[in-house]
Nucleic acid binder design. Structure first.
Lengths: 226, 226
DNA sequence: GGATGTGAACGACTTCACAGCG
DNA sequence: CGCTGTGAAGTCGTTCACATCC
């Protein structure tokens, strides 16, 4: 890197897959800290996470010059830098729509609050559920979305509703000025560019697994032809 | 492709991302069928799913010559071919380990049984849960894994246990001759090559979303410099 | 020596663009 | 015509290999 006369972070662009791996590094590093590991090398990290050492270096290099040649990386520093790069150096308030079993699982999921995500609002269209409380949070009607989200300051939304209503509910969240949606409904959502979307399609993942498993069978058959 | 003198299916290799999209096409096509759509074009499919038309054609071309130039594709045919390619033209028996909220959500999840996945066995290490029944399925102790999995013929495993025990439990599933694992624990699992693994890391997905949302802010700041 | 950072080579996936067919 | 199938070009991400620094 040439023009680093000043020590300002040059804010190199961070690619999507790289960002995904940073999450993994982060989790692993936080576990390491507990064991007081003072240094980590790209080889160690890579082996622990199933990633090539070159890949690790490339990923970490985007964070700035954190590596100490001949030594490795300092976990503490890395953690801070990764948090910053991923936007985890602050709290994120999250709204959860669709209070079914999945929602309950998400509510209790430790991984979220551990990284500063806080679920601050619940919504469900079922009148029987509206007004009830879970973990100290009242379930609101979707009508209230705009006001409740404004009041609680939620910026992210978890969408755990049936696929039929997913698009409509998502639009409600957009109208309520949510900035990003994590969608669990098996539906393809259409959102304005400015609202970010990540989808987790459980059925598709399981189908992917079936495909891979089935391929193994085909593989061995294919090998016979050699 | 050279030696296609015979009309035998040349079984073109199906790439991982392509297989992922096939799941989406399949779901959309099954919805279309209900509405009696007789023909679909790559453009229609693409727009519905947020994929380029060229991509759709490339993906579907791997299934054999199903397209009718000047006309489009017949949904029925496509569905059959996709099912076959993904290995969904049969039932898959599935074992579910770790009976918490997530497991309950997965058990009731329609998308699974709709594509022929049947959960046939439950396991949980908590003695208080062992012996209980959910949806007509008894919860077994992990000790019983080998025998129960052999008896029920489960080939796939859903792993919904805490990350600390994930590796151990996964090894148990491998020992019980499971062929693929869908892992929900936020841990990196080490499995033999022959056992396929797909991981769904909820925390990482949410972090990814935070990253994207945060990027939007940085983007607009970056645009100012222009 | 040991480990980082990084251009260059490589590979995988996507888009382009168009020939060919109904 | 309209729409598919597909080589060619392009883009993105990963791996290699090595100069560099402690």
């Amino acid at each position: 890197m040439r023009g680093d006369s000043a020590s300002t972070i040059s804010e190199a662009r961070l690619s999507r897959p790289s960002a995904g791996r940073l999450s993994l590094y982060l989790r692993h590093l936080e576990a390491l800290i507990g064991e007081g590991g003072a240094k980590v090398s790209s080889v160690q990290l890579g082996q622990a996470l199933g990633v090539s050492d070159a890949q690790v270096r490339k990923d970490l290099a985007t964070l700035g010059n954190l590596g100490h040649p001949g030594v490795g990386y300092r976990p503490q520093e890395l953690i801070g830098a990764i948090r910053q790069a991923l936007g985890l150096n602050r709290e994120w308030s999250v709204a959860l729509v669709g209070v079914g079993n999945l929602a309950r699982a998400l509510l209790r999921y430790r991984g979220f609050q551990q990284q500063g995500f806080r679920i601050v609002a619940l919504f469900d269209a079922d009148p029987a559920k509206v007004g009830q409380c879970i973990d100290g949070l009242e379930i609101h009607s979707p009508d209230q979305m705009s006001s409740v989200i404004a009041r609680t300051g939620a910026e992210l939304g978890l969408l755990a509703v049936p696929s039929e209503t997913a698009q409509t509910v998502a639009e409600g969240l957009v109208a309520a000025r949510i900035r990003g949606i994590l969608n669990f409904a098996p539906a393809v959502l259409r959102l304005p560019e400015s609202v970010k979307l990540v989808s987790v399609d459980l059925a598709a993942q399981l189908e992917q697994l079936a495909f891979l498993v089935q391929m193994v069978g085909n593989e061995s058959r294919a090998l016979n032809t050699r």
